[in-house]
């Protein structure tokens, strides 16, 4: 066999393996979609010619207050995002463009929070939340994440790369510190805000442990907690109905991802590299 055909064979084999892994990787998702639209006996027997049905979605939808869960998740990600934008913009700007005493020490303290995860502090954070009276509320679920060390760091790095001339020009025109921030830095950081928003929304739409702890009624529960209660084995719901509920829960984010795929990947990248 000539070197040419060996190389071509290797390339072909590589492509085949890559595609095989891709299929394996999305197969759990595909099975769930398939099961969601079929009766559970057809789903578990892999009857490929079985009739499609929406019955599972009907059963799932009537089994839990999904609309409330969706609304709560929506309010949660929105309030976390607004909080993060405001807090991280102000703090990131201070770290990037204002010289003041004590800055370095505080910055290290903030960076430490990259490691002291809110997830690890669940026990004491619950005590704090109950003392503040925000247990079982959207605010209670979102508050620990608002002053994100990651966000502060990200905004600092972005603001540092804004050309100094723009800053000076705005100051000459008589802008105060907040004016400069609002007119020069915030517009210049637009791509970072978009990237950060995508990362933040998908993180908090998917967050589970803290919302589980801090909520105790359906009025406040987000979609992940709702889904876990609905799909709990104790409830004995069948696999097709669970699949339908899962598909429902992931649909908004999945659609968003498929539409904005490039931006999503770019966002995660940008957020990770800074």
């Amino acid at each position: 066999m000539s070197a040419m055909t060996t190389a071509r064979l290797a390339a072909w084999l590589e492509a085949a393996l890559a595609i095989a892994l891709a299929i394996v990787w999305i197969s759990p998702l595909i099975f769930a979609f398939w099961a969601a639209f079929h009766t559970s006996s057809d789903a578990v027997n892999f009857k490929l010619d079985a009739t499609w049905t929406l019955e599972n979605f009907r059963t799932a939808w009537n089994g839990a207050p999904w609309l409330t869960y969706f609304l709560n998740s929506f309010l949660l990600v929105t309030s976390v995002l607004i909080g993060q934008f405001v807090l991280c913009t102000l703090a990131g700007f201070a770290f990037a463009q204002v010289e003041f005493r004590g800055k370095d020490v505080i910055f290290i303290l903030v960076l430490l929070q990259l490691f002291i995860l809110p997830e690890v502090l669940i026990v004491e954070n619950y005590v704090v939340a109950s003392e503040l009276g925000i247990v079982d509320s959207i605010l209670g679920m979102g508050a620990p994440y608002m002053a994100s060390a990651f966000g502060i760091f990200l905004m600092r790095q972005t603001f540092k790369s804004v050309p100094k001339e723009l800053d000076d020009a705005a100051r000459v025109e008589g802008c105060g510190l907040l004016g400069v921030l609002w007119r020069v830095y915030v517009p210049a950081a637009r791509p970072t805000y978009i990237a950060y928003a995508l990362v933040s929304v998908s993180t908090h739409w998917n967050n589970f442990l803290w919302p589980l702890i801090v909520t105790n009624t359906d009025a406040a529960r987000p979609i992940t907690v709702g889904l876990s209660i609905f799909a709990a084995p104790e409830n004995g719901v069948d696999i097709s109905v669970i699949s339908a509920a899962t598909v429902m829960a992931i649909a908004p984010l999945l659609v968003l991802f498929l539409v904005f795929q490039r931006q999503f990947v770019q966002a995660f990248l940008q957020a990770g590299i800074k």
Binding site: T224, L227, I242, I250, L254
Partner: peptide, 10 residues
């Protein structure tokens, strides 16, 4: 981009 809970269900 999937929640861990959904991944577990799958």
């Amino acid at each position: 981009i999937l929640p861990m809970i959904a991944a577990a269900n799958l």
